[in-house]
């Protein structure tokens, strides 16, 4: 095998290891969420992420990067990606991506006001 091929194999092994680690973390998050919901009397209910309101139980279930964004929007109520990035200290492009992930999961809505796009929690 050439050096390049060996490097590619090494890289694929690293990616595989990272994916396994991520999978373990998601499993752990699911378990924490199930335990928490169980203690709050929601035992046995299926965890349909798309239907869950953005309460603390959902926050505990979210991956770290989305939780930070969700917590910021919970405090701001309605904000642009720039406003959220000021709150979290992360770059605007990353917050925009995370906010859109939360929209696609059904936790947030978005609307346009002039040139700006505002993200908000429905029902607020």
């Amino acid at each position: 095998m050439t050096n390049e091929e060996l490097k590619i194999i090494e890289l694929l092994k690293k990616i595989n290891s990272t994916l396994e680690s991520l999978s373990n973390k998601v499993e752990k998050s699911i378990k924490i969420q199930e335990d928490f919901l169980g203690r709050l009397g929601h035992k046995g209910k299926t965890l349909d992420l798309d239907e869950m309101p953005l309460d603390v139980a959902t926050l505990l279930y979210l991956p770290d990067h989305l939780r930070k964004t969700a917590l910021a929007i919970s405090e701001l109520k309605e904000a642009t990606a720039s406003e959220v990035s000021e709150k979290t200290g992360r770059v605007r492009a990353a917050e925009s991506d995370y906010l859109n992930q939360l929209v696609s999961q059904g936790h947030l809505k978005k609307k346009r006001k002039g040139h700006d796009v505002y993200f908000y929690i429905e029902g607020e």
Binding site: M52, P53, L54, D55, V56, E75, K77, I121, G123
Partner: peptide, 16 residues
């Protein structure tokens, strides 16, 4: 219910 709890979280954060 959970919707109320979600609002309670937001109100708690905004109270600060």
């Amino acid at each position: 219910d959970r919707k109320w709890e979600m609002k309670a979280l937001h109100l708690t954060l905004s109270a600060k």
